[in-house]
Write a protein that binds this DNA or RNA. Structure first.
Length: 494
RNA sequence: GGGCAGUUAGCUCAGUCGGUAGAGCAGCGGACUUUUAAUCCGUUGGUCCUGGGUUCGAGUCCCAGACUGCCUACCA
């Protein structure tokens, strides 16, 4: 790199007249002895508090972003906004010193942060407002805000510059506030039921607990490769061995797989384990939790998904009790003779049913494909699928009466699997066989330290996982995971 | 990985048969002391994603690439 001159290099942006104007205003503020970058500003109320508990004649101090301005000459009305609320400020030349008025009028832009002080009142047209008597510049915005009416429509800008989406699109703000409150509520709800929240390694020497490709990294001091976890399961079970009887972890998993409307490489998973419980109790737990969230935050067990025009496109009915149906019964609803056919006949039926399969698939995978395409993707109201074939779930306990199936449920809502729940396998000898069988197929390593822990005795337990992103999608009606993850993974530019 | 679509002013979007690059909002100048998508008058602003090609002439047609979206594949 050659040494650069002290002035920043000219970029296409720096040539824009819009940006030049803002820089000019910045310089004028500084020249007038006004710090354009503010500092501590003590507020008496949040904007939402002023709005929600409005009374006239109240002296208030509030801070926010200027999001609209209606200039009437000697009076101007501007909107002061933060994440939660918007409130109108009434700014009149006779209420403030002349230099304050001209400063605002000439040098403050939509997008700037300001602090105001004044008295609340109601305008002639009935709008609750603050009659501003003092104004403080808190931060100058050097770039224009998105379109005030359309907001940010460009998906790429929404995701890469989420702050623009948040400042311009109310629905986005609502979804992320709702997500935060729901996640907090999940933690409180579980803690109230005696579950301890724990944190287990995200860097794992052997990535276990699921069958997905991991991200690989390297620890320099140890001279050893590590993997970002694909699931916390095997560590949470070590805690059961150690005597924790009710634990959960709610945090990020990482899977090095395709990205889609329903998949982000890093996603949030709740896993909970309950010693001496079984999958039926775990199903009850999930049903209780999801209904609680819906009632508390949506105010109904009927979840309406709407399109851009506000038309209801789908209604999910969470009314209890939720359907519980064995896997094989669901397949027999597609074809009563499904399990009487030979594997070859099942492949033939797939072609007739319009389900694509590959020749490499095992027989159980052919059946699973039919399940996914013709049942899962078409099931929107909650359905616990039970008595799943053992091949599909290597970490669950086999059914005592029928070893070909395992004691698990898979909860489907909104056409996707939202939560699996197991009666966990605690027999270390059977567990080793099943992991080694799986490892053979997937060329994965077996977590020997996990098996060692099991040999010390893990209590029988119920376990669940809940895909938090998908749960939030279902409850908020978002049809892409990118709309419920603040910064979804995108390919880097350049 | 494969298929389809998109990329034009700061934002939201038009752009017909290949013939001078358009609107609304934002911005800038002006009017207005109760507006709220304020209004009214005037006005600035373009690497038409990038690179090739065809053509007298390309935002427009062709080829390659980038990024994004949707579908698909992979994915307990």
């Amino acid at each position: 790199m050659e040494s650069q001159p002290s002035t920043p290099p000219a970029s296409p942006e720096s040539e824009s007249a819009l940006l030049a104007v803002r820089r000019e205003k910045l310089a004028k503020l500084e020249a007038a002895g006004i710090n354009p970058w503010g500092g501590r500003f003590d507020t008496s109320h949040s904007i939402a508090q002023i709005r929600d508990s409005f009374s006239e004649g109240l002296q208030v101090r509030a801070a926010g972003r200027v999001t609209a301005c209606r200039d009437m000459g000697k009076t101007l009305f501007f909107d002061l906004s933060d994440l939660e609320a918007r409130f109108q400020c009434f700014f009149n030349a006779k209420n403030v010193p002349e230099d304050t008025f001209s400063t605002f009028k000439n040098l403050v832009d939509i997008g700037d942060w300001v602090g105001v002080e004044g008295e609340t009142f109601i305008t002639k047209t009935g709008e609750p407002s603050i009659k501003v008597t003092s104004l403080t510049v808190l931060s100058k915005s050097l770039r224009p805000m998105p379109d005030k009416w359309h907001g940010v429509a460009d998906r790429e800008i929404k995701y890469r510059q989420r702050y623009l989406d948040l400042m311009a699109n109310q629905r986005s703000r609502e979804v992320f506030i709702l997500r935060s409150r729901m996640v907090a509520e999940i933690r409180t709800w579980l803690q109230d039921r005696g579950f301890l929240e724990v944190e287990t390694p995200m860097l794992q020497a052997v990535p276990g607990g699921a069958a997905a490709r991991p991200f690989e990294t390297f620890h320099n001091a140890l001279g050893q490769p590590f993997f970002l976890r694909i699931a916390p399961e095997l560590y949470l079970k070590r805690l059961l061995v150690g005597g924790f009887t009710k634990v959960f972890e709610l945090n990020r998993n990482f899977r090095n797989e395709g990205i889609s409307r329903r998949h982000n490489p890093e996603f949030t998973m709740l896993e909970a384990y309950w010693a001496c419980a079984d999958f039926r109790q775990m199903a009850d737990l999930v049903e209780d939790l999801v209904c609680h969230l819906a009632e508390k935050f949506i105010g109904s067990l009927l979840i309406e998904h709407k399109d851009a025009d506000g038309n209801v496109t789908r209604t999910i009915d969470l009314s209890r009790p939720w359907q519980r149906t064995p896997y094989r019964d669901l397949l027999r609803s597609i074809d009563p003779l499904w399990f009487d056919y030979s594997p070859e006949q099942r492949r033939t039926r797939c072609a007739e049913l319009g389900v694509e399969i590959s020749p490499a698939m095992e027989d159980y995978e052919v059946t699973q494909q039919v399940f996914e395409k013709l049942i899962e993707e078409k099931t929107f109201n909650p359905c616990f699928v039970t008595h799943v074939p053992a091949e599909l779930v290597p970490l669950a306990r086999q059914n005592p009466d029928d070893p070909s199936i395992v004691d698990v449920y898979e909860l489907i809502i909104n056409g996707v699997e939202i939560s699996p729940g197991y009666s966990e396998l605690n027999d270390p000898i059977v567990q080793r066989q099943r992991l080694e069988h799986q490892a053979g197929e997937e060329t994965q390593k077996v977590d020997e330290e996990f098996l060692l822990a099991l040999e010390h005795g893990m209590p029988p337990a119920g376990g669940i996982g809940i895909g938090i992103d998908r749960l939030i999608m279902m409850l908020t009606g978002c049809d892409s995971i990118r709309d419920v993850v603040l910064f979804p993974q995108l390919k880097s530019k350049d």
